[in-house]
């Protein structure tokens, strides 16, 4: 695969920098999204089991 811009003799350093930054950000996003799903699932399980907050009823009004 060819690189669309000429990155010169140090292309490897530039590509590595962008790739690592992308990997770190992607990992962070994935962690936060998966954590959100996990917390929602646990909450749903607890509420199905009949455990609810006293304030939940007020919030739904």
């Amino acid at each position: 695969m060819s690189v669309p811009v000429d990155l010169g003799p140090h292309a490897g350093f530039i590509v590595a920098a962008y790739a690592i930054a992308l990997a770190v950000v992607a990992g962070l996003v994935a962690w936060i999204v998966l954590d959100h799903r996990a917390q929602l699932r646990i909450l749903a399980d607890l509420e199905r089991a009949g455990v609810t907050r006293r304030s939940a009823a007020r919030e739904e009004v």
Binding site: V25, I32, D35, H36, Q39, L40, L43, A49, V51, R53
Partner: peptide, 27 residues
């Protein structure tokens, strides 16, 4: 913008996590 977005999402998760903790303590 990425920082603010991820921070809001993470804060929302933490609020849910504390809600889970409270419900588990109640149970």
């Amino acid at each position: 913008l990425l920082f603010v977005t991820l921070h809001l999402m993470a804060m929302r998760n933490e609020i849910l996590r504390r809600r889970v903790r409270t419900l588990r303590l109640m149970r």
